[in-house]
Amino acid sequence: MTTTTPSAAPASAPDGRHASPQAPPEEIEAFAGRMFDVLSQASTALMISIGHRTGLFDTLTSLPPSTSTQIAEAAGLQERYVREWLGAMTVARIVTHEHGTDRFSLPDAHAAVLARAAGPDNLSAIMQFIPLLSQVEDAVIHSFRQGGGVPYSAYTRFHELMSELSSASHDAALVEAIVPLEPGLTRRLTDGIRVADIGCGRGHSLNLLASAFPGSAFIGYDFADEAIDAARAEAAEWGLENASFEVRDVTDLTGTGAFDLITAFDAIHDQAHPATVLGQVAAHLAPDGIFLMGDMRASSNLEDNLAIPWSPFLYTVSTMHCMTVSLGLDGAGLGTVWGEQLALRMLADVGLTDVRVEQVEGDFINSYYVARR
């Protein structure tokens, strides 16, 4: 593979038209260097995803400094692939390499961010978005040109990945930190109330609540059959008799009755018709009911998001998934970065005017909206 560095632009176009002023060479060189950094970082993200899915980071944490042969044997993988992956991780300064002994190791500080034992602090799992989203690049480009969007069915492993990410954070924080954002809610759940989860996916969050609060009744709604099947399977495995799941379009909750608590975790901005869904939430809250919504922490104002280091990721996920799946259903295309200001306006529009926006310590991605009528 060959690459070229950018050359200076001509002062005028070949047909004699005036061209844009030429940028200073040092600015061109600096920006070209930045683009190569982007290429390297994106490549590293892909290799980190592979390391996560193959368990190589976990294997490295369990071994002393080891050769590629020893690491491959311990991981049950092919040595030649492991050796090349270790090369990528070494030049990315993620894995250390002892030149004389040809042994590799994962520093403790890196393991605390990349190994599964890190729980919700494990950032290797989120790197899986890079290969997942790249699968639909052609379809998204088609949508750029022709309109419409990409269906959920085009995303292999999407529910699996989202379940992995939400499970890690909710295992650590849902019962102990997120539920207590509303004073008295833990007591009410203990005493027994009706709870619904909108866009429940594989249902792990709802099953966690059902397990922690056996006196309450829980139901999860999602329109994906595969996700609901997984949710029911986990509930059965855990022996939960107070959790049920239903394949349902949540733009219409007719016949479900009133709920004392409705939750929606990272789900509203994906909806084809989010305003309709929020209207249904408001209409189906009991008089003293609570809507607990977790969604991306961002501003509705583009200029404010310049200060968020991971905002390029948020806009990319929006373009490649959240916005396009909504547009694919002739929806609003709200997008991942709908932001706090728009979220508050949309909640107020459906009568949920008593809203607090909360954060959970250690969760730098999400904001939590605690809303009442």
Rank of each mutant, 00 (worst) to 15 (best):
E226S: 08
L302Y: 00
R202L: 02
V337H: 06
A233S: 15
P64N: 03
G351Y: 12
M293G: 09
F265D: 03
R53F: 06
R116H: 00
I50F: 02
G279T: 09
S167A: 10
P10Y: 12
R248L: 15
W310C: 00
Q128R: 13
I141Y: 02
A75G: 03
G201H: 09
V91D: 06
E241I: 08
I71M: 04
Q146L: 10
I228K: 08
C200D: 08
G335M: 11
V91M: 05
S205I: 06
G55H: 07
Q280P: 09
T190D: 14
M320N: 06
R372S: 01
R297W: 00
I141F: 10
T256D: 15
A111G: 13
Q22A: 07
S169N: 01
S244P: 08
Q146D: 15
R356K: 09
D222W: 01
H273R: 12
A125L: 12
T96I: 12
P25T: 03
N122M: 04
S153P: 08
G148F: 13
L261R: 14
L240P: 14
G87S: 10
T54H: 03
S244D: 14
H97R: 15
Q359V: 08
Y369T: 05
P287E: 01
S167F: 00
E246V: 08
G16Q: 02
E137A: 14
